[in-house]
Simulated assay, not measured.
Amino acid sequence: MAVFQLLFPNAQLSRTDLTRKLGLSRMAVGEVAVEMQEHRIVREVGSLQPAGRGKPSPVIAIDTAYWRVISVDLSQEYVITGSLVDLCGRIVERAEMPQPRGKKALAVKDVVAFCRRLVGLAGSQDDPSEDSHAILGIGITMPGIIDPKGIVVRSVALGWTNVELKKQVEDALGIPTMLSNVTNAALIAERFLGESSENSMLISLRRGVGSSLCLNDQIVRGYTFTTGEIGHIIVDPQGPRCTCGKTGCLEALLAPSRIRQMIDDAPEKRTQILAQAGQVLGRVLSVSIGLLDVHDICVYGPADIVGEAFLGSMREEVHAIIHSEYRQVPELRRCEQGEDLAMRGQAVTVIRQFVPQIRQNIAG
């Protein structure tokens, strides 16, 4: 896995470079590289002539031709989206399954059927055609509280409570499956495919308000798997009523739909409305930022809301509350990874979990 980590997502390194970085012998690195090539995890892309005399050193990169990850996003309203992703985390094929409006709960059988459809798009690893691929695993991301064992503890958006989704998908398709909260998946994408550091936070303003936390390169889930569930914390007891039944929740104040409605009602106050929203978020997060000492914060949301008026006000509020000569205010920026952020992040989670098991599975 160490070789793969050095190459992921887009690096090309010679065996000489790998020997130096890993502190292993040339023979050991050569044996590992050959085995990974046999399993179609890496491939040779050329050679590097060393300075002076000596044999050229093969240059290797991740092989994107054979293995595929199925990644499914259940976080969008009225549609299930999915994709086939290569070992570099790039989407190579997409699919969608519309869902009827007014439906109270998403049917698990629809998720299984959609995953089966994506398996069909990948082809069979027993098929000798060049268009056929082997499935490394399935990753499914969704809003809600997710037990790492593969149970959806609670997802209000999907209408699910204690749904053993991992087991049902694996029983139906025979492919190892992982589940993640959608905001955690988004932060994984930012960490490994974007600009986030090993100590970072992601704030999501989409259907609601959520967050994710990475400390020392580990996603923090918490004792009850609810780390980052900030949407229903009351921040203004006199504020608007929330869909959860409480009054003044952060989500009731900052949900994109509410902010857009406020702007539609008073378009001349657009900048002021966005600045006030950013100020509220900055104030709410400041204690957590001070407590956790994160290096950077990425805000994931629609471009018409998460712009400079919003971010500038948020940045000023955080600075005013936590800045001191002993503390550096974290970098704060808008996420630029696009709408497929969570889907790609969930694929990365599957890749990092299952690539080390390829050798074991083939040997077994």
Rank of each mutant, 00 (worst) to 15 (best):
V3R: 08
Q12D: 14
D17E: 15
R20G: 00
L22T: 04
L24F: 13
E31Y: 06
V34M: 07
Q49Y: 06
A51Y: 12
G52F: 10
R53V: 14
S57Q: 06
P58A: 09
V59G: 01
I62E: 15
A65F: 08
Y66M: 08
Y66N: 08
S75I: 07
I80R: 07
G82C: 07
D86R: 01
G89E: 12
E93K: 01
R94W: 09
A95M: 08
A105Q: 13
A113T: 15
F114K: 06
C115W: 11
A122P: 01
E130V: 03
S132L: 01
H133W: 03
G137V: 02
G139S: 03
P143D: 01
I145G: 03
D147H: 11
D147Y: 04
V152G: 05
S155G: 11
S155C: 14
L158G: 05
N162Q: 10
K167H: 07
D171V: 05
I175Y: 15
P176C: 07
P176V: 13
L179R: 02
V182L: 04
A189G: 04
S196F: 13
N199Q: 09
I203K: 00
S204N: 05
R206H: 11
R207L: 06
R207P: 00
G208S: 09
G210R: 09
D217R: 05
I219L: 14
F225I: 04
D236R: 05
D236F: 07
P237D: 10
C242M: 13
C244G: 00
L254S: 06
R258A: 12
R258H: 12
R260Y: 09
Q261V: 10
M262T: 06
D264G: 01
K269P: 00
K269Q: 11
V287W: 09
S288C: 05
D293E: 02
D296Y: 09
A303S: 03
V306G: 04
F310N: 03
L311E: 00
L311P: 01
S313D: 04
V318A: 03
Y326R: 15
Q328W: 05
Q337G: 01
G338C: 05
E339Q: 04
Q357M: 15
I358A: 05
R359H: 14
